[in-house]
Design a binder for these strands. Structure first.
Lengths: 160, 160
DNA sequence: GGAGTCCATCAACTAAAGTTTCCAAGTAGA
DNA sequence: TCTACTTGGAAACTTTAGTTGATGGACTCC
């Protein structure tokens, strides 16, 4: 519905910098209601029109070119809102370890049938637009990776 | 096994402010490796020890009390990393419209069987720890809400 | 009760995110 | 070619997130 009219929206690179992610949004998730120019001024203006927060074209430029890699929450929110992605899109860890196929579809169904996952969550998941779902899926995978990383979740107090 | 030793980790309130979300993290997602005090100094110190980014106790206090509601990306990343939640945890929209039960579990299985959702994503979802899953589920619901909100996606009202 | 300690809170300061404004290079139209 | 317009880029400035250090209350120990 929105964004895929410029062609198939490719998947987000798993290990991409913030600048690359924002550039990807502009290239692949540009809302269909806004015409093509897609430059910094246009982006900033569209965000200002579409969301509550307004950001300047220079800020867009800095973010696109990587001259700014630590935006504020409202800036991220404005970008995410305009492009229709959750802000979790920006939060992937740079690591991209492959996900093994440990659970089969059958096992998944068993899990679901056991009520281990809330039904309305799955409903929401399948109800997402293709673009948003792609982003959300990456987010889930990232969360799973972080969940299994024993960095700050080890139950041994001997840390420092 | 991180966080639930202080009691059952309640769900995140769907429409919670940033301050409430951070407070919830401190109360319910405190890593088991770090002892109980859980004050601002402790929180700031633990984040400094556990992640690359260090934030001050005053910053923690400001965020907890809502005196600061626009943190920078690195600050959010440090918090999310320490508490083991994805960045998207902070990005829920403040609206909380009820999710209807339009799709039954049977319909869900059909959707899943049709390969509409990538299998490894579901695998990752069921493989999450209970705490992380709770957070991720809220995130999915929020993404679904944002996806259906015609705010910046005003191409056509008819979506499905 | 008084001293010492811990902690939330606050004020002053620093650093940097974001804005405004302008400039130079590129481009279309005459 | 010249002019007008567009766009990426950059300098100067404003705003504010985050830090540092101080203060006062609560709480403990003697």
């Amino acid at each position: 519905m929105a964004g895929d009219e410029q062609g198939p929206a490719k998947e987000v690179p798993p290990s991409a910098s913030l600048a690359e992610r924002i550039e990807w949004l502009i290239q692949n998730m540009w809302p269909s209601g806004v015409p093509a120019p897609r430059n910094n001024v246009e982006t900033a203006g569209a965000i200002a029109a579409g969301s509550d927060e307004a950001i300047s074209s220079t800020t867009v430029w800095k973010l696109r070119t990587g001259r700014q890699d630590n935006p504020q929450f409202k800036t991220l929110t404005a970008l995410a809102s305009f492009f229709g992605v959750p802000i979790g899109y920006f939060g992937f860890s740079s690591e991209s370890e492959p996900i093994g196929e440990e659970l089969t579809l059958k096992a998944l169904r068993r899990e679901i049938g056991a009520g281990d996952i809330r039904t309305e969550v799955l409903r929401a998941l399948v109800d997402l637009s293709p673009q948003t779902r792609s982003v959300v899926e990456e987010m889930i995978l990232a969360a799973a990776r972080a969940d299994r990383t024993p960095s700050n979740r080890d139950d041994e107090p001997g840390t420092d």
